[in-house]
């Protein structure tokens, strides 16, 4: 779905950059926490859970905005395979943004842990306690986290390529402020 706009709407841009910071933090917090036994472990876990659930809420809002407002068309001169890759990477990024928090939540449910967000606020379990399910989800959370990081690196490399090599206006569609002398 595309729109005649040349930029994403302001709420879409705001959500993109806010979530980019949150998700990169989540990936670093995740690998950092499982590799330490210092008191930092608890602090990081206590950030990881609520921030992950916040990402789930934000991505649902973002998806709704995307369905309402669509996305600016990719540059006309872009070769078809690259266009396909661009679309595919967006689908994968959305899928991971939705799947990762749900897997995290389900993984804790299947392991009989309370899903505490902060203080007395906790979420209900979404799966019955089951070692097999827990193992499946734990592996999924682990491997998808690394896939997520790899896809983000590719996304960033691709965007930089558009900006620095082609300078074709793709970066400007999402730029927080206008960096290019185009108008809405």
């Amino acid at each position: 779905m595309t729109t005649a706009r040349t930029r994403f709407t302001a709420p879409q841009r705001l959500l993109h950059w806010l979530m980019a910071i949150c998700i990169l933090s989540m990936l670093f917090i995740g690998v950092g926490m499982v590799s330490t036994v210092t008191p930092k472990y608890l602090t990081l876990v206590q950030i990881h859970k609520p921030l992950g659930i916040a990402i789930l809420v934000l991505v649902l809002i973002r998806l709704t905005l995307r369905l309402i407002y669509g996305a600016p068309a990719l540059p006309a001169g872009l070769p078809e395979p690259i266009k396909l890759a661009a679309h595919l990477s967006q689908v994968i990024l959305y899928a991971l943004m939705i799947a990762m928090p749900i897997i995290g939540w389900a993984m804790l449910s299947a392991a009989a842990y309370p899903v505490v967000l902060f203080g007395g606020v906790h979420l209900p379990p979404i799966l019955p306690v089951n070692p097999g399910l827990h193992t499946l989800l734990w592996h999924a959370h682990y491997y998808l986290a690394f896939a997520f990081f790899a896809v983000i690196l590719m996304h960033v490399a691709a965007i930089l390529f558009h900006k620095l090599v082609r300078n074709d206006g793709v970066f400007e569609t999402m730029a927080p402020v206008l960096t290019h002398d185009r108008s809405e």
Binding site: L27, F28, V31, G32, F149
Partner: peptide
């Protein structure tokens, strides 16, 4: 531009590996 892109991706990957403890074999995990 390609050097810049490689540097950005490379630095991010190394920072991630460091956070995960892969570059610190003495960390008590």
């Amino acid at each position: 531009p390609f050097v810049v892109i490689a540097a950005v991706v490379g630095i991010a990957a190394v920072a991630f590996a460091y956070t995960a403890g892969w570059l610190s074999p003495h960390r008590l995990t």
